[in-house]
Amino acid sequence: MRATHHPKPAIAPGPARGKYSPTVGAGSQTDDMSTSTRQSAGKPWGDAVFRGATLAFAIGILALFAAMIAALWHESLPALHKFGFSFLTSAAWNPVKDDFGAVIPMVGTLLSTALAMLIAVPLSIGVALFLAELAPEWLKAPFGTAIELLAAIPSIVYGMWGLFVLAPVMADHVQPWLASHFGFLPLFKGAPMGIGMLTAGLVLALMILPFIASVTRDVFLMVPKNLKEAAYGMGATTWEVVRDVMIPYGKKGIVGAIFLGMGRALGETMAVTFVIGNAYHLSWSLFAPGNSIASTLANEFTEADSDVYLASLIELGLVLFLMTFIVLGLAQLWLKRGVAGGGKP
């Protein structure tokens, strides 16, 4: 989320508003100063209390984070003891023999997310560009609102739609077509059931598309007009302006939006559970059913009756937590590097 706001401060002192900024800036500054002087004179402890309170909140967040990790760690101890590191390399999932490994749900989570990103990112950047740049003025507001409303649809509705509407279409039309044209690839082999990794990726893509699209649109809208106008003035085409001005300017915001979507896709539960097929099999085929960490947890938590079973599920939760953490951490690092390398135009 934070990443998406990066472009804002970059624009605030921007030259576009330079004409007005002296008066506005000076006015608000005087206001600020007089208030703070008054406060510190009347209530000398006010600032300290405020600082302390915000500090406490900030520490509280960190403490909560640490407590969650600690609790997950503690609750998954029976599984950690029993399986050790092999939990991360074993493809077993056998509640009868109490033998568990995270490979299949991990692969399923990463694969369905990757599929979703592959589909959603180009689409949503296209949607955002259309909304920000190309759409006629009267269409922008209703279209934009519609996209934002898509983001408000509960994920279980996407799941049901995926199962009852998308899955039959996939089974009857999309998968047979893929199999007959690209069937030589192992990716598109197997019975077209309409339920499986490909459908899960597609539903996820539709779910995260509005998130990425609406944030990216906001980012594009923040590109200073004079930059674009300068480019147009030099004879650039719309495509050149998009490619050489808008995308480079909004790069960090777009990456932020993408990671926001990715974070959502990694942890998405219900929509995936409906269509992924919930089976512990590894397959090269995208038609085959698989499983993700979140849907494993949703399906099996209530009936996990042995200690190791329950602990293994909690350890899966820990794995998902760490996976999300690593992905978002890498995103932050990447963004920082972008700043250091002079990512802005």
């Binding site: 077993a92 999932w93 056998n94 509640p95 009868v96 023999k97 059931m193 339920i195 499986g196 559970t273 409906f274 097929g277 919930n278 089976a279 512990y280 099999h281 059913p289 499983n291 949703a298 399906n299 099996e300 009936e303 009756d305």
Partner: peptide, 21 residues
């Protein structure tokens, strides 16, 4: 190979959530 339990390691197939699934 599989055994008797409330959830088992199914040799084949896909899983639906609940009877309705």
């Amino acid at each position: 190979k599989v055994g008797n339990a409330k959830s088992v390691a199914w040799p084949v197939g896909l899983g639906g959530k609940g009877n309705e699934g």
